[in-house]
Amino acid sequence: KKVLATKVLGTVKWFNVRNGYGFINRNDTKEDVFVHQTAIKKNNPRKYLRSVGDGETVEFDVVEGEKGAEAANVTGPDGVPVEGSR
């Protein structure tokens, strides 16, 4: 997949743990970017399912997906594990 941007910060708009996807709002362009649970690189080690929490700040790369921009290599800021869904 073509990389459109790297090390982008954003805020998780919503994430559905059961369906394994959601959207992140980019801090720079204010665009919403699709995020799938497989894109989460560093999950909260205390959680079994990969997820990001609503309102959580995350860092990610933006790649060209089949339906437009999507997140890849999702971590917390500066590469720490994500907090995950509460």
Rank of each mutant, 00 (worst) to 15 (best):
G55S: 06
D32T: 02
G65M: 00
G53T: 14
I24H: 01
K2Q: 07
A5V: 06
V8E: 05
T38R: 10
L49F: 12
E56A: 12
V58F: 02
K7G: 10
S51I: 13
G68L: 01
G10S: 03
N73V: 00
N44A: 11
A39S: 09
E83R: 15
T29D: 04
D32W: 00
Y21W: 10
N16E: 05
P45T: 13
V12D: 02
V62K: 04
N19Q: 15
I40E: 04
G53R: 15
G65Q: 04
R50D: 10
R86G: 14
K30H: 12
L9P: 07
K42S: 15
G10N: 03
R50S: 11
F60G: 03
P81T: 11
V35F: 15
F34I: 06
G22D: 01
R86D: 13
P81Y: 11
L9I: 12
G53Q: 14
T11A: 05
A5W: 06
T57E: 09
G84D: 12
G22E: 01
T11Q: 08
G53L: 15
E83W: 10
R50Y: 09
W14R: 01
D32N: 05
L49E: 13
V58A: 02
V52Q: 04
K42Q: 15
E66N: 09
D54R: 15
E59W: 07
P81C: 12
E31I: 03
A69E: 09
E59Y: 09
F15P: 03
G79V: 12
L9K: 14
K30L: 09
F23N: 05
V35T: 04
G10E: 03
V3I: 12
K47D: 15
T6L: 07
P81G: 14
P77Y: 15
V82E: 11
P45A: 13
T6Y: 09
T75H: 13
G68N: 03
K30T: 05
V82S: 12
A39Q: 09
T57Q: 11
T38P: 03
K13C: 05
T11F: 08
T6H: 12
Y21G: 04
E66K: 14
K47I: 08
N43C: 13
V74A: 02
L9S: 13
V62F: 00
D28L: 00
K7E: 05
E64C: 09
Y48P: 15
G10L: 00
A39L: 01
V17Q: 13
N16S: 13
V74D: 04
N19H: 11
K47V: 10
G76S: 14
H36N: 06
Y21Q: 04
E64G: 05
V74R: 01
N44C: 12
V33D: 04
I24F: 05
H36R: 08
V3K: 08
D61R: 01
G76Q: 14
T29N: 08
V12L: 07
F15C: 00
I24S: 02
D61K: 01
G22Q: 02
N27Q: 08
K47M: 11
K47F: 10
F15I: 00
V52D: 06
N19S: 13
E31F: 00
E66M: 09
Y48R: 15
D32R: 00
V58E: 01
N27T: 07
E70C: 10
V63M: 06
Y48D: 15
Y48L: 13
G76I: 15
K1M: 07
K42E: 12
N73Y: 05
N43F: 13
G76R: 15
T29G: 02
V52M: 10
D28P: 00
A71S: 03
V35H: 04
S85A: 14
V58N: 00
G22W: 01
T6N: 08
D78Q: 11
D32H: 01
K2M: 03
K1Y: 06
D32S: 03
F23T: 05
G65D: 04
K41L: 12
N25K: 13
D28K: 03
A5T: 06
G22Y: 02
V74E: 03
N25F: 06
G10P: 01
V80R: 14
H36Q: 06
G79L: 11
L9G: 07
V33Y: 00
K47E: 14
T11G: 02
G79R: 11
T75L: 06
I24E: 03
P45L: 12
K2L: 01
G68A: 03
N25R: 14
I24Q: 03
P45K: 14
G76P: 12
G55P: 04
F34H: 06
R18M: 08
F15Q: 04
G76M: 15
V52E: 06
E59Q: 13
A72D: 08
F60E: 06
K13N: 04
V3Y: 07
